[in-house]
Amino acid sequence: MIELIHLTKTFGSFTAVHDLTLTINPGEFFGFLGPNGAGKTTTIKMMTGLFTPASGQVRINGIDIQAEPERAKRNIGYIPDQPFLYEKLTGREFLYFSAGLYNVHHADIAERIRKLTEAFEIGAWIDRRTESYSQGMRQRIAITAALLHDPTVLIVDEPMVGLDPRSAYLVKQVLKERSKAGVSIFMSTHSLPVVEELCDRVGIIKEGILVFEDTAGSFEIFRDKYNGSFETLFLELTR
């Protein structure tokens, strides 16, 4: 479960995120939308402990990430928008590195890596250094790393960037499975079809303020109002 409570982030006089309050329940798939520079990545960085909020709280399974960062982060799997990996490590080494950071039992790591790399069709690339990877291959490794410790919360920033259609399909399948298994998923994306396909609920942020948040049911009503097009709704709200 993810709780964002009156979350605000400022950079000097600029307010990137203003008084954001949200709750994502276990098993819920939340789509977070907004134009460029709206505050999506800033929100995600606060949720993963990379940014300190100016005020407000982020709670992961009831644990305040500022007060107990290590305990809170144990529950999180984070997939960044730019999957930078240590270039001098191979994909396999990076995955072992990541598993070690999350204290995954060493005896289990090999099997988990095998299953996930098979699912994402990483193949022989796993034993090459990540400096030779394409963007899509980096993304696959980053997603595998995020899932290795079986997180109960997934925070995903633009997961489809750089993925070919088959990889995108594989990622969507895995995310759906995790959501069904009770994982809370918070996903920021620009892809409206992906939101429509995957998300139970959506929120739209504009200039740091949540301008729309509702369930999929209410979303259908809005969609009807805007000629059945979610795109029109999005454009209307973020104009």
Binding site: G49, L50, P69, A72, K73, Y78, P80, F84, Y102
Partner: peptide, 14 residues
């Protein structure tokens, strides 16, 4: 550490 540091800073490591 560069742009790769996210993997450590977002992990449960002090």
């Amino acid at each position: 550490e560069g742009a790769n540091f996210w993997s450590i800073l977002s992990a449960p490591v002090s």
